[in-house]
Nucleic acid binder design. Structure first.
Lengths: 338, 338
DNA sequence: ATGTTTTATGTTACCGATAACAAAATAATA
DNA sequence: TATTATTTTGTTATCGGTAACATAAAACAT
């Protein structure tokens, strides 16, 4: 491995001079700078980041911890986060937790010992509080993305769950639906709780009393959706909901699949809508009406927030960014049948 | 920051003893081990990986460089790679190149200076040879995934392009198709060339002469597919292909979309099939007939190959793993119309 | 009890870079 | 030309851990 000492010897200067050249120190004579740069090129020298970290206390590594790497919503976040990180000279370590707090905890531990300068975290539940506190203790900056852990305050960036839920519910109400089911995620997640609240409020505002039988708590990336949907539609005729709102794209497509299996037509017999697009290209299968959260921006701006926090070092008051969603009306929602 | 010196002082031992405890050296008295471990827990000590790397020459960081983080095929590779890496105590840095060799080159450079122990690479084209050679020069182990750069030999893992292409083409031929178009990727990619060759051979074996007008070279993640498809179907009746084979899922769904826009029914007027599933859940939209490559396994086994190579250090002869695909026949392919 | 192993712990130097200070070389001024 | 200021370069110590060797303590043998 080529070190600054090798360069120094070859260029007849001290290692410190080489270090100065590398770091573009202004107090270097032009001639020596050229000479050193020449040797650097000649020996194909690459600085050792580990050694540097030892004194600088920074690794220029940041991590993004997401709950489902197969979900385009999160990969779009990853893309945004990566773009911003690279732009600012940081590397991104990506961690996938599968919505499992244990895996998340293990991951956070490894990231700390890997020496990351900061973490962009999509927490997988209330249980995340434990390991998030470890970050606080080590004063490693972190930013919540999509969801937060209210017990442990920190910067955050997320979609506007209230506005988005309202948009979707009002869209259904405007079409004439009054019996709307909401298949939500686990209530240990902040965004799930916000959506739940917004769902109730929007219904009440329209004079509809929320029906507990229509509000179902599930998991975001695995659950028995076939059974859940079957149960919903098996409610006797007058009770059966005419529309289903799914709290994410994964639940959305699973709902569609379950309804297809049950031979229930969408949107005629059941309107379906959800948060976030499920497809790899936007208009491949333009069927599902969705509220699209700006995932790329969430990653991009979240990373910006994080790196600002890393570089300022200041424990300034926490910042909270909330981004609006876009309602995309397609053909999975229509008027209810009479 | 808590160091072994802090631990040492508090436990009344030397730093070296602490180091030994951390590394589970067998020549430590039970009693002192317990005492040191006690203090470690007390002070919440986490070893500094950077300092360790300085002597050990390894960072336990590996990178996976993929061309499209939005594509489920690649995220499944990532998932497999991450699982294996974590299992063996390595961290994964994920890089997205958008099929752009410049971005890839820049990435490889940054990864080298970040000190990764190895790289899992899906090269974005012939132009990758340049930066791949840099890896060789620094003797940083790497493994090709999905595609290779034949000029620079190294371990590789990929799908069986010959078998997979043959499967798909034979499926179409068996249905009665003889005018089959192949929308392939850029010929700078090894897998594209292999598929092209397999396509020709399979046709010839069936007594069909490959028609150059049916063999189109495009890009894997962006191109004007609407135009390409429009051109194909505008061939006069007797010349118009009755089936389209797309070289990846992205081209596949774009083909479907273009055909929909042109109001050409699939599979009645045009059969469509492609490599790899486009959806986030396997059966959400069970329409496209595809040949599914084992992406997760490619990542998982590729990482295993890589880490073995890192740990052996030996410049043994290169290994090449080829995995078979699974043909999933759904409803986008059928008999040609008379 | 004394010497010899064996086991357990400590010392020193070093990994590659840099911060802080020291010294030399050059330029500016009297 | 001597003196001071300025620019440029070099020295030394340090970051946190570990390898290699040295030493002390305990266990065993004579």
């Amino acid at each position: 491995m080529v070190t600054i000492y090798d360069i120094a010897k070859r260029a007849n200067v001290s290692p410190m001079t080489v270090s100065r050249v590398i770091n573009k120190s202004p107090l270097i004579k032009e001639s020596t700078r050229l000479k050193v740069e020449e040797v650097i090129r000649e020996l194909d020298y690459v600085p050792n980041k580990q050694a540097r970290s030892l004194t600088s206390k920074e690794t220029r590594l940041v991590a993004l911890v997401i709950p489902d790497i197969s979900n385009p919503f999160f990969t779009n976040i990853a893309r945004g986060a990566e773009d911003k990180a690279l732009q600012l000279g940081y590397h991104l370590i990506l961690g996938n937790t599968d919505e499992n707090p244990d895996k998340e905890s293990q991951y956070i531990g490894m990231l700390m010992s890997a020496g990351v300068d900061g973490v962009l975290l999509v927490p997988s539940g209330e249980a995340s509080a434990g390991h998030v506190k470890k970050l606080v203790k080590r004063s490693i900056p972190f930013v919540y993305v999509d969801r937060t852990i209210p017990q442990v305050p920190a910067d955050s960036i997320s979609g506007d769950n209230f506005q988005t839920t309202r948009q979707l519910v009002q869209h259904l109400i405007a079409l004439g639906h009054r019996k709307i089911a909401f298949i939500n995620g686990p209530s240990s997640l902040s965004n799930v709780r916000e959506r739940d609240q917004a769902f109730r409020e929007t219904l009440q505002l329209a004079g509809i009393e929320p029906n507990p039988a229509y509000m179902i708590e599930t998991h975001f990336k695995q659950d028995n959706f076939d059974e859940i949907i079957a149960k919903l539609v098996s409610l006797q005729q007058g009770e059966r909901p005419t529309a289903i709102l799914a709290a994410n794209n994964f639940i959305g497509v699973n709902t569609l699949r379950a309804l297809r299996t049950l031979q229930i037509r969408v949107p005629e017999e059941m309107a379906v809508t959800c948060f976030d697009d499920p497809d790899i290209i936007p208009d491949y299968n333009p069927f599902l009406t969705v509220a699209k959260q700006p995932a790329y921006d969430m990653g991009f701006l979240g990373m910006q927030l994080l790196i600002e926090r890393i570089q300022s070092g200041a424990p300034a008051s926490t910042r909270k960014i909330v981004l609006p969603s876009e309602l995309i009306i397609r053909s999975s929602t229509g008027k209810p049948q009479e």
